[in-house]
Design a protein around this nucleic acid. Structure first.
Lengths: 254, 254
DNA sequence: CGACGTGTTGAGTGTGATCAACATCTGTGG
DNA sequence: CCACAGATGTTGATCACACTCAACACGTCG
């Protein structure tokens, strides 16, 4: 596997928070002018991670927090015997690296799936944020709670759903998340996961994952090819996977 | 199943925060006098939940936050088809109900396993905490991150470990958590879970869980009976389950 | 061109599920 | 005091979902 690299962009080249392409989306909450002002100073630059690049490493401490600006990445853990469990995927607007700022080290690693651009915030200023901007501190708690909720759902899927249900569940969840950040047009979204990623997220083997995907395609639920996912039978997918439905709207982000 | 009840105790009957039985434990961080003062006003009373009683309900909003003072409880989700997935267990010092205060509703339910006493905090004052006590706000974020870390570990276990490994992993994790809050004497701790609980936490059937437990007993790893768990071969358990070892020291609590 | 990552399919196997029966123990009511 | 119901634990027999192994197709890239 070719491991991509990650590089830091100087402040001058980055998109200023005032022109953030995500904030206008209906999904994200409004910012008061002074909040926007603080965040734009909080942001120290951007990190560009190429496909396959490692953004955060389990066991290491990290001096930065990140918000995904564009691209796909994923959080995962590795067992001593080499087995990988993908814990969650990160899409634009998602927050990464909190554990490494709050504890002495990260409990998981993060890799880029596609070229990923992340806003970098210095851990050293996190405390100022908590002191001076309780609303933003609250937002961080909110985001941590949302992450917890997503893992809870994921754990329920892995623990108590069959292979087919799991795959349908994951695809639907990711589809809805893409939709909320404007990445879906006409029931379709770009979808950079390999079958290995799906398998590692769901606790299945690649071979079985392949057969399940084939089954879903054959029955007309989805079309998955060339890095694109199309949900051709949303109702069917909802029933099949016992999915709770789309995540409600409006959320904060930093 | 006999469903227990939960009842609120008037302020006068409760243990004051100044005399909190948990705070002196080495596991928990020190409090500045003004923090202790705030928290003692933040605490509005205690909730006593009998075994089997429901403390929090998925889908409902809740006006209170809780810290477990004594007893065992567990967080879980139920699938439409009735399957239950236990997400985590809560021990003394653990924080509950954040989701219901931060979102409009809880994403999971919480039930008492034994008689459980919880400190109640009003959601309405959470905002004051964020404004006036950024250190405590940070502690809440810390606790949310810790919960996330525990679920990550749990997800890794359910997704990528075998039945035996999973059971060993869960027992060891709970054992270490008990140890940190002073519930272990001589490699033993009280252990109120039924095999059904273990199965529902690990995504296994009760029957298989029973056989696995038997196997662990027969091979001398554990002794589990009459509500007591003894780890008779800790090294063996660590190897078998590929467990990362005891959680590091000092943590905050509210 | 070959190497490698990815996807596909078939054959055989096994871990863990399901079904079923029974043993304990508890609390409840007759 | 005993009979009974219900929750829990135990064990064996059978079954199936998902795993492993294996081979091959296809694309991209050096």
């Amino acid at each position: 596997m070719k491991i991509g690299s990650a590089s830091m962009q100087p402040q001058s080249m980055v998109t200023p928070c005032q022109a953030c392409p995500l904030r206008p989306l209906r999904t994200f909450r409004e910012f008061a002018p002074e909040e926007l002002d603080f965040v734009s100073h909080f942001k120290m630059g951007e990190l560009v991670a190429n496909p396959g690049a490692t953004i955060l490493v389990e066991g290491e401490s990290n001096d930065h927090l990140y918000t995904v600006l564009s691209g796909w990445s994923f959080r995962y853990k590795i067992l001593p015997n080499g087995e990988r469990q993908i814990l969650n995927f990160a899409l634009p607007g998602d927050f990464l690296g909190l554990q490494g700022s709050v504890f002495t080290s990260m409990g998981h690693s993060v890799n880029a799936l596609t070229r990923t651009v992340l806003c970098m915030f210095p851990r050293s200023k996190l405390w100022v944020l908590y002191e001076k901007h309780p609303e933003l501190a609250f937002d961080i708690t909110w985001l941590a709670s949302r992450e917890e909720r997503m893992i809870d759902e994921h754990l329920l899927a892995v623990g108590r759903r069959s292979g087919t249900e799991r795959v349908a569940f994951l695809l639907l969840s990711l589809f809805y998340r893409c939709k909320h950040v404007g990445m879906v047009t006409e029931r379709r979204t770009s979808f950079p996961l390999t079958q290995q990623h799906i398998a590692d997220a769901l606790g299945l083997s690649v071979v079985h994952t392949n057969k399940v995907l084939r089954g879903l395609s054959d029955r007309g639920y989805i079309v998955l090819r060339a890095g694109t996912l199309e949900i051709t039978n949303e109702t069917g997918m909802l029933e099949l996977s016992q999915h709770p439905g789309e995540e409600p709207r409006q959320r904060p982000f930093i």
